[in-house]
């Protein structure tokens, strides 16, 4: 703001104040008045910003909290809650849905279940052994998460699955 002030200020300097019509000393070009007005403007903006900051933080609060929750790195799941062999299940990974797949050969895959096209939540289709997005027909590979066909531009974000006795530990890569 002070930059702007200076810039305007220097623009006014070449204009000798005594050239102004005497009855209009304060119209808009008297240097003292201009600086006074600019100072008032800066103070006003500062005041407004002081009001706007709490309002912004008040409104942003839930999103900021969610962002903190989204930073979750690891989720533990009891095997009893995991899908049966050949099935997939949508689970919570922080604030996001994840898709956990229990492959026929006993291996596990897990992905963030948000379609890379327009953000719908994808599902595992056991019959086709692939991941499908119901919204626009995008198809992903069930073991790698690679976008196989349809509109998705990118593969699904993969999570690692580690077996630990009767638990599964799912981690961000």
């Amino acid at each position: 703001m002070s930059e702007q002030e200076e810039r305007h200020d220097s623009a006014v300097v070449p204009e000798p104040p005594h050239d102004l019509p005497p009855e209009e000393p304060g119209a808009c070009c008297s240097r003292r008045r201009f600086i006074g007005m600019a100072g008032l403007g800066v103070a006003g903006l500062g005041y407004a910003a002081g009001m706007a900051y709490p309002v912004y933080r008040y409104l942003a609060d839930p999103a900021e909290r969610a962002a903190a929750e989204a930073a979750v790195k690891e989720v533990t799941l009891a095997k009893a809650d995991a899908p049966a062999v050949g099935q997939g299940k949508n689970i919570k990974f922080g604030i996001r849905p994840a898709l956990l797949i229990h492959h026929a050969e006993g291996k596990w895959s897990c992905f963030i279940a948000t379609c890379t096209h327009l953000g719908c939540t994808v599902a595992y289709k056991p019959a086709e052994k692939s991941i499908k997005c119901p919204c626009h027909g995008g198809i992903y590979d069930a073991t790698t998460g690679a976008n196989v066909s349809g509109p998705p531009p990118k593969p699904l974000t993969q999570l690692t699955v580690e077996e630990n006795n009767d638990q599964l530990i799912i981690r961000r890569v």
Partner: peptide, 9 residues
Amino acid sequence: NEVAFGWLV
């Protein structure tokens, strides 16, 4: 107690 500046509003 929880929302940012909620006490102020």
